[in-house]
Design a binder for these strands. Structure first.
Lengths: 189, 189
DNA sequence: ACCTGAACACCGTTCAAGT
DNA sequence: ACCTGAACACCGTTCAAGT
């Protein structure tokens, strides 16, 4: 028989977990931005040789993808789940929460750019936004377009935060509302 | 007397121009994306030693900033200048033109992320958008906010284009129009 | 299976030297 | 003033070897 399906594999106990690697990567990201996230830096942080990282992830790109998805997953909206509230408030809550979490790790946007953004948390977020907009009365196509619009705006917004005097939450909220005004005209229910 | 103000300085003829360096950087960007834009790659492309690049730019960041600004400057809208056309068409022309030029150099967005985006062409673009929106009847504050919204959306939109099945110009145009719907409500004139 | 040491082919940047 | 050769401190990744 081969190794027990889904069970622990033989060999020495692994000294790390994938989460340890991501913790180290995130602390490097927050300390020095996207360029500070290096395989060698992560290895030093967790106390292994640089190539030991390849036991946990196939390459650096995989680490970055997992890290981005973790940051995306930190944004867990709660006011958005309350179906008694108006749809605009619910969507606004998700968008503000997402921006807050991305702003907390500014370098994360620099890691997103070239990647597909198709991790489990990214998909869940996209589905959540589409559902909220569909509940608001948008057609499936318009809901998908609206979710894409909201996501593009928050990413671009953080990307622009670099050298600006901080536009702040008020500016972001204003833009968000113009965006919701535009989507409101698409409702049919 | 010191060196003639604004004139040519003494010493050997320089074998390159800043534009040569940027041409090489742009061709590397188009061929291999943001990670392919390296000082050593540029030097090889133009036929000098790696450190000779530092005669033309103080460091790599300066090369990247100049490159981004050049790409931004390529977007020169003409339909937008026709004051006889409705404001929505004029803004739409600028946004579509900008997206087209950024899409032509997809890696460019990866170079924008951490930088201030305050080059001369970037400022000219921002001013142009603000003027268009002010002409449409928006207050100065709303026009500035609208320009920021449009810029954030186009950048985020390109950033998301990575792994998606190409959303295409139609999708972008739809999002743009929702955005303009939202801005239309801010008009007072 | 997991980890290490050593190596390979890169990278940005600096320095001393040549013209 | 401009350019080069050499070096420094990095980088991601691979390979052979140890347990």
């Amino acid at each position: 028989m081969p190794a027990p399906a889904g069970g622990r594999r033989p060999g020495p106990r692994r000294s790390l977990t994938e989460a340890d690697v991501l913790d180290a990567a995130l602390s490097l990201l927050d300390a020095g931005g996207a360029p500070a996230v290096s395989v060698r830096g992560i290895a030093a942080k967790v106390g292994v040789a640089p190539n030991a990282v390849y036991t946990y992830f196939p390459d650096k790109a995989a680490v970055v993808r997992a890290l981005v998805d973790r940051v995306l997953g930190e944004a867990t909206p709660d006011a958005a789940a309350d179906r008694g509230r108006p749809w605009r408030e619910r969507v606004e809550a998700v968008a503000l929460d997402l921006r807050a979490h991305l702003s907390a790790h500014p370098g994360a946007v620099g890691l997103v750019v070239g990647d597909p953004l198709d991790g489990p948390q990214a998909r869940a977020l996209d589905r959540h936004l589409r559902d909220l907009l569909a509940d608001a009365g948008l057609s499936p196509g318009a809901a998908a377009g609206g979710a894409h619009l909201l996501l593009a705006h928050v990413l671009g917004s953080i990307a622009l935060e670099a050298g600006e005097q901080p536009p702040g939450t008020d500016q972001y909220r204003w833009e968000l509302r113009r965006l919701l005004d535009g989507l409101a005209g698409e409702r049919s229910a």
